[in-house]
Design a protein around this nucleic acid. Structure first.
Lengths: 343, 343
DNA sequence: AGGGTTATAGTCAGCGCTGTCAAGACAGCG
DNA sequence: CGCTGTCTTGACAGCGCTGACTATAACCCT
């Protein structure tokens, strides 16, 4: 069983070369205070010469840190998941941390979640956990983690934002921006395709949109259709909304996938986008540019959310409790699926 | 800096409770031979009673294994990447291994790849590396890994399948199956939308398809169009193929995304799918069921590929060299985008 | 029965690092 | 000048486990 890596320089090698104690090398590596500039220079030179990189296993065994954070996610939305991973990975890379991913089946139910979580935590130490939707709104998970004093950062939570560190965007404000945009483009008969309303995001988007419309264009006619964020529900909702004599001139779907479904419904009904009806999505996911015309949508800073959450976890290392709240900006991406009625 | 986990039972605790030496516990945990049934039972009872789980850091520091494998992937195809992650994760979970993700920019060029790879390997030991496309066909990466005696498993390689362990599917055979299917459905004027031909997969699909057509329906008229696996290239290719007086009755696109593009071209041209033209994709990706009608396509066992590669890596732990070759089955998924001309 | 071999269990050092404690250096001050 | 307090450095044990080695017990053969 050969070691996978070559013989690597150890702290002892560095200490010998720099003619100092191992502990001093450790101090320099860990940027502890009370280290003279001269010592630091000597050590750093030796480190550079030997290409020394501290051994993670030894560090974690001897010390109280593991240099590892875990990302608790589920796979149902591939785009979402992969962007989370990207963001978290980047932050880890920057700080020399490792990212461990934990794929948890969101359909397993909260008991199933806890079982798996227990396993995950028992197998190894970790410096913190990034909790993503839908887990980030699970009170039992938070109880469990607080119980065991595991630091965690929540991504896009809607409940109890005071618990743990939270990183999120303002779904309601983003939906309101869509409302502004549609009204500014002259639309007054607007369809709304909802997401699964047990999700905080679906509720926030709906309310943000409706409230803003009520403010700025109370005369507007709004028709709603149920949806569940999936493509097929978009087709159904699109047909329900459009196959009437008094069809809307614009439709806002709660996410891009269902917006793509609405577009398909348009194709089936012989309705042109955006000439006959304008469509807005939400997420700026893969599917936003896998339809024609490309979808006007809200850019969600998904990988930034994960990045920021990871940064909080790493920076907060040592703190017993974390309680930051970070709001990240969304952005309306104007593409080709909305027509200005005034022109 | 509180430890993230509670005080956990150690091997010494187990040894004390079972009244045996630590080494014996270690033997049981590692399923070494030369352990009597009686001893094993005692130890296992103690382990169960204490809920003992071996500490990964200590194991990896003391021993020659790290219980960690890394997945080298790139993010350009979210569906592909996430399925790889899922498959690898499942296999790791089964064996109590950890999966470390390494996100490498495929556009960084081979020098960039090696730099990053060096960093990745220097930071920690690992028991093996899963190398995914496009990295799995990079000779310099293989050289590098062989040089350092790092065991690796390659996913979907096209070159030098004798190096490392390889897990793949037969792209050419799958494309041939599409040819069979289209011909069986009465199509003799067929369009082919190629993928980026610098990829082995694109070449294999093209040749597998063309060769089979030449065999079973030499009279067929084949028209080809360039593509690059992306949605937009599908639109262009679709227009090129269909906007003529002698349009094909069926189109085979090298992947689902470009097939979706072809469908969009159809919608723009007022051509109905599948009534006027049939369409086949390849991958069974997310987009296959995010278009209407749902796409007939080839199911690629992506997560199974990653699963199998991980299993090989874990099972082969201890072997100096790995040289397995595993072929996984594809499958034609018949949905609604192909019409039988005979009926 | 004796010698050789194999199965089973234990001892102990040490993987590479960090935490704790203590000692030396040095400045400030009465 | 001696004492205290702060800064800087080092010595050393030990995190939890495994590899190499040793010590018995059990077994086989002639």
């Amino acid at each position: 069983m050969p070691h996978v890596n070559q013989a690597r320089a150890t702290m002892a090698d560095v200490a010998r070369l720099a003619n100092v104690s191992e502990k001093s090398v450790s101090r320099v590596v860990n940027q502890e205070s009370h280290v003279s500039a001269k010592l630091r220079e000597k050590v750093e030179a030796a480190i550079a010469e030997l290409g020394y990189v501290p051994d993670l296993a030894a560090r974690s065994l001897a010390g109280s840190r593991s240099f590892t954070v875990s990302l608790l996610f589920d796979t149902r939305g591939p785009n979402y998941a992969i962007k989370l991973i990207e963001g978290a990975y980047e932050a880890c890379k920057r700080h020399g941390y490792h990212l461990r991913i934990e794929n948890l089946d969101s359909f397993a139910g909260e008991d199933g979640w806890l079982d798996r979580l227990g396993e995950i935590l028992s197998h190894s130490r970790l410096d913190g956990l990034i909790v993503t939707p839908p887990f980030s709104d699970s009170a039992v998970i938070m109880d469990y983690l607080e119980d065991r004093q595991i630091r965690f950062a929540r991504i896009a939570p809607f409940k109890e934002r005071g618990r743990g560190s939270c990183v999120f965007m303002d779904d309601a404000a983003a939906a309101a921006q869509v409302a502004d945009f549609l009204v500014a483009n002259g639309h007054r008969k607007i369809g709304l395709v909802n997401g699964a309303l047990k999700h905080g995001a679906a509720i926030a988007r709906r309310e943000g949109f409706l409230n803003r419309i009520a403010q700025i264009a109370p005369e507007a006619e709004i028709s709603e259709a149920d949806g569940d964020f999936l493509f097929e529900s978009g087709i159904r909702a699109g047909r329900a909304l459009l196959d009437t004599s008094n069809a809307p001139t614009a439709i806002f779907a709660a996410n891009d996938d269902s917006a793509a479904g609405v577009m398909t419904a348009c194709a089936q009904l012989g309705i042109r986008v955006p000439d006959d009806v304008s469509i807005c999505g939400f997420d700026d996911s893969w599917s936003a540019t896998a339809v024609w015309p490309y979808l006007t949508t809200i850019y969600q800073p998904i990988s930034e959310l994960a990045h920021e959450a990871t940064e909080l976890l790493i920076a907060g290392n040592g703190a017993a409790v974390m309680n930051d709240q970070v709001l990240l900006a969304h952005r309306l991406i104007e593409r080709a699926s909305v027509k200005n009625l005034a022109r």
